[in-house]
Amino acid sequence: MERFNLGLIGLLILVLSGCASSGSKSGAMSNDSGMSSSSDSEDAATYGMGMDDNNNLETITDDSLSENLETIIYFDFDRSELRAEYDALINAYASNMNSNTLLTVRLEGHADERGSREYNIGLGERRAQAVRRMLLLNGVAPAQITTVSFGEERPNSYGSDESSYTQNRRVELVIN
């Protein structure tokens, strides 16, 4: 466990340094954020895992995963390819999910607000699928992954400027 977490910290420094836009929402090192940042239902789901009757070592591993790994991947304008800086993050998710096949991840794709809404659902899905493909290539079973695209409906930042758009073109990884 300890070795694993040390490795993760090194990895996080790598991820964070390569990701200028991840600032306020990263929550990677804080105690109480991580998965719970997106919505109430995820809060509840994460909490539920801790109270599970089958509490065991693997469940604790889940918590460490959700608390320590970056949960948002950002994308360039009009792009759905993963930037190389996220390779290590994807590897970390994949190795955790491979070692605990009970873990599932919901990939929530998002787009910035420009253009029509249903087309943006498509763009968000494309980004979620890009993350899904990388996880599959890293050996994660298809049954462990679901995708949902919120398009421009759940922005991270409400402004109509480039810095908000950058925050909003993203995939959020939600572990259950």
Partner: peptide, 10 residues
């Protein structure tokens, strides 16, 4: 309507 399926092809 639009369906995307597991593979996300709309």
């Amino acid at each position: 309507l639009t369906l995307g399926g597991t593979d996300g092809n709309l």
